[in-house]
Each structure stands twice: as C-alpha cells, then as structure tokens.
Design a protein around this nucleic acid. Sequence first.
DNA 1: CCGCCTTTGTACGGTGGCGTACTCTAAAGT
DNA 2: ACTTTAGAGTACGCCACCGTACAAAGGCGG
Lengths: 240, 240
Amino acid sequence: MTTEADMRGNRVLAAVPRPELDRLAEHLEPVTLKVGDMLYEIGGSVPHVYFPLTAVLSLITDVGNGHGHFVEVATVGDEGLAGLPVFLGAGPPSERATVQIAGSALRIGAEQFRHDVVVLDGGLQTAIQRYVQAMFTMMARNAACNRAHNIRQRCARWLLMTADRVHSDSFSLTQEFLAQMLGVRRASVSEVATALAADGCIRYSRGTIDVTDHERLQEHACSCYAVIRDAFAVAYEGLG
Amino acid sequence: MTTEADMRGNRVLAAVPRPELDRLAEHLEPVTLKVGDMLYEIGGSVPHVYFPLTAVLSLITDVGNGHGHFVEVATVGDEGLAGLPVFLGAGPPSERATVQIAGSALRIGAEQFRHDVVVLDGGLQTAIQRYVQAMFTMMARNAACNRAHNIRQRCARWLLMTADRVHSDSFSLTQEFLAQMLGVRRASVSEVATALAADGCIRYSRGTIDVTDHERLQEHACSCYAVIRDAFAVAYEGLG
DNA sequence: CCGCCTTTGTACGGTGGCGTACTCTAAAGT
DNA sequence: ACTTTAGAGTACGCCACCGTACAAAGGCGG
C-alpha cells in the first residue's frame, strides 16, 4: 500500500487518473534500491515492474564479443518504468536492469501488473504507450550518439541526464562506473572529467559529482541531451 | 482493398485473426516504394502506416552536429511496420523513415489505423506490441553494436539482415549507400567489401550485391545479427 | 564509337580512443 | 598510528577509422 503523494512522484503513475490509481495503490510496494542491484537479467524472468521515485536505473546489454563486456542502452528514472517486457508480452528481456543511482521506487508483481493493465485498460495503458515512444527516441538517439559523438560530448550528456533524474546537482558516481556506462576506458573519463572541472562545469571527489554549471555543461554535450529531454516532455504533455 | 494472400506477406498482419483482418483489408492500400522515398520526416506528421511486403525501410535520425549528418537507427522489413508514433500516440516521430530497398508495401491512413486498432482492440494491438518489444531489442543492440563492434562486423551484419528481409541473396545496393547507413566512409566499406568478397562471402558489382555464403558471412558479423533475428522469432512465436 | 557519369579501388597523413601500467592520495579498517 | 584499498591522474605506443584525394573501370546516352 502506498500513498498518492508517493505515486505522483513517478511521472507515469502521475498520468493515471484517480480511481484507477487507487486500485493500483493496493499493489504498489515501496522499495529502496542500492547501487548495483539487479532487477532482472537478460533472458530471465521479470518478477516485478519498477516505477523509480528517486532511484535511477540502467538498461544494459551484453556484447559478448571483446573485453568491454556490456554497454548501457537506456536509463530509467522517475519519468518511466523498468519491466516493459511484462507490458509488451513478447518474451524475456534482452537487457539487464540494474541500479545506477541508489534511491526509492515503487514496484508491483508482474502478474498483478498484467492483470491491472489489461482489466483497467485506461490511463495506465495510455501513459505507458506514450512512455514507450519516448524510450524509442532515447534509444534511437543513443545509437546515433554512439556513432557520431565523442567522449566529452557523451559524458557531458550523461551527467546532465542523471542530474535531471535525481533532481539534484550532486550524486554518487565513480569514474570507473561512468566509464562502464559509456563503454569507454576509465582513463578517458578521467581526462574528460578533468577538462570539464577545469572549465567550471563540474566538481568531483572520490565518488561524488557536483554539476556546478548546467548551461556550460550543455555546451560540452551533444544535441542528444535536449532531444531526449524534449521527447519525454512531449510524451507527458497534458497528461499530468 | 487487398487480398488475404498479400496481407499474410507481412508478419504483423499475418498474426491478426481472420475477421479482424477482413475489416482491415478494406483500408489497406498496396503501394510500390522506390529507393529514397521518404515516408515521414523527423517532427513531421505521419500520414500513413506502412506494412512492408518486399520493400525494406530505414529509420534514420539526424545528428545535427558534424558532417555525417544522419545515422540509421533501425530497419523495417516484412516483419514489421513503419509509423509506430501513430500507434503510440506521443507526438511526432523523432526519426525519418525512408526506403532502403525498393519493393511493395501495404499502407493505411493514420486516422483509419488509429480507429481500427482502438475499436477492434484485438489481434492487431497484440501483434504490434510484440513487434515493439522486438524493435526495442534491435535498437538496444544497435546502440551497443555501434559502441563495441568494428566496421567489418557491422557491415556483415547489415548485409545478412537485409538479405533476410528481401528473402533473396541478391539486392541493389551501392557502397556509398551502405556507408551512409553504417555511418562510415565509403572508402571503409570498399575495403571491407573487398575483403568479404576475397573470402568468398559476397560478390558485387556496380550497385548489386550477392550474398554467396551466409554461414561464412555470419562468422564475420557480430553476435548482434543472431540476437536481433531471434528477438523477432520470439515475438512472432505461436502467432501465425 | 566517344565522352560522361556513376561506382569502386586505393593511398596518405592525422587523430581519437584503446590497452596497459604506474603513481598519488583520500578514506576506511584495525 | 599504520596498513590497505578505492578512486583518480597521467603517460606511452598502437590501431581502427577518419577526411581527402585521385585514378580506374563499367555502363549509358548521343
């Protein structure tokens, strides 16, 4: 059981109208997520659907080939949910879902979720479909970004997106972790981070990052940041 | 108006049960698509939803920044449809849809499509949702592939996927075009193509490619080929 | 048959990011 | 207080791929 205030902290749930939301509330369970927790695995089952409140999740795919074993393909914050395969119904996930930034989330059992979405067939279904479209934009952009933009640009974008999701200019993050998310060497992150800090965009020390100048940081980032942010804005336009 | 045989040539439509399909038939219009035709533009309206039969489409996104202006983020063949924004309902597309390999397709007006999907709420909705999940896998993999695999691997994968979609070992394709799809120099494609031909995987001459040895070509490709192919197989499992 | 255009082969120097490895320092444990 | 460890800075050689350029060759119209 969960309060309405909690639920409105997730933008997908916030877009669900009252009576439907009340029924969902009974099945939504608040949980605290720690960095590195795995919510579901590639090819495995998806026991719960997660609606992040303050946590940030990461969808990661395995590229068998080579040494840099995995690559982040999308992130999920309070603007979305993890567990779309339950909604879409075409077999197990092709990504791993892990916790990128610790925090809180609401979760619901996969069976219950399926039941609620199908039976109610109202606001939740619509909200998720709109979210799916924004996810498409994010992933498309991600693919293009990986092809076209350099490390500094991608790194700056990642920091901006994460700051947006945690609603704070400060969050826990080691360069090692960031390097894995970006699919690059830690050494490269170190160089870029030093440059960004020298330019006054960020400060950091032993696992804590502070974004000190969003605008200037955005100048270092590629246009993908704005494109993705806007895609989510459009998806939730007039929905709550 | 369209015959059932035509409709069964597209795997999404093939998954729709009889009575529902009959009603769709009235509104599906057969069209012939030429290379380079643009079906819809980034941020523009989506007048029709397309179900390819023999044509292959390409979803392309603009990366403003730099010279290699655009990057392919997904392809659509007879296993899918183009125009998902109409289905998902969260604003205009963030990709351009163009024709990659000429051929036939069925199309339906966006308004009519929305009407049919919502009112009927049956097999088509389910089939599309499953397709959406497979598309997720493709795009996720694309993003990872762009980060992790070299030109030879990506080129080989692209050729294999295209051969699958056109159901033929031979199709029209210039190196210039392929280079744009992969987001690399034409010169790089030329080098890779020469190597693949020397290895007996492909033959080609002035705009026509022949895949002469799928298995050997697959050895040059990355695992992304099999992963994506299998994702679509799972999506359509037991659906028709 | 000739000239033109498209498609392809090939070469050159430049560079962004890689793999690796070593150092330094702040924090955490005992 | 002393050790250990995690986080971060830096350097070196290397290579895949880039931008660019030019030449060869197949196809097409005149």
